[in-house]
Amino acid sequence: MEMKELRGSRGVLAAVALLIIFIGVTVAFVQLNGNVARGISPEYNRLAHLQQPNSLSAWVYDWRGFDTLIETGVIYVGAVVSVLVIGRGLVRMKQVEGEEPVPQTSLDLKIGSVNAILKYFIFPLVILLAAYGILIVTGAATSGGGGFQCGVVVASAYLIGAVFFGKKNPLNFRRKFLIAIGSFGWALYALLGLPGYLVTGYWQYNVGTDLWSSIAGFPAQIPSILHTIFGDPYRLALVLKGGTFYSTAGIVPLINIGEAFNVIGAICLIFLVFIYGWSDTEEAKA
């Protein structure tokens, strides 16, 4: 839509609509000020530390783990759709001769003007940023951050490489690699619900932490082998004042890794096709 379409009566209409929405939202938020109901959140706060040391992860991956699974899917689908629009997986009907899709070419990156000294420092920066992303995902059970953040940091490393080095990106992710890790990440996240589902019938039940199997009405006991597999590798020693308290985040660190892979795969793939384009013949060669 061009700006000139907004001149005249349409523009007036749009402005009036925006004004109404603006007033409505403002009035609503003013009314809400001081009247916000707390609802269920005190209950979550009371339980969060039993779940794991990082409350944010407790929320995102444990209370609402399935919710985040689908959110992750939005990123995955975003990547698949963006890449499809550029050219990966366009389909034609066998019987119908339609117009051929327009071939997409890569962006014309002019990197000749980048300072050589600056370039010298960019390679270490890219490597260290990628390592920083990995540090974030390994510490996700205990400190702020997690899969999304890791993915975004690594993707920014990739983008910096593309901006400064053009086609000779040091972090030279291949298309198949990105599609593979994106898919692996989402599949890992989805399938981590399977152990809990098989034992209790609840998908994404955190078999490593297991808070609820002592409550009446819970369908099953968690076998100790599942505790060991999903709880112990990431068992943490939380030293509290009264003594030592051992805690584990269960499947949450693993979910974080799946999430990170998915986000890296998806976002880097979007960058890749928007910068370098997509061509099936190139893909076949690689």
């Binding site: 390592a131 990995i134 390994t138 690594v154 000779k168 040091p170 030279n172 890790i181």
Partner: peptide, 18 residues
């Protein structure tokens, strides 16, 4: 975390061209 970090790092390292 050290082992996991190393493994993921190795995986991404295989994609580095410089």
């Amino acid at each position: 975390p050290i082992v996991v970090g190393f493994a993921i790092g190795f995986l991404f390292g295989t994609q580095v061209y410089s």
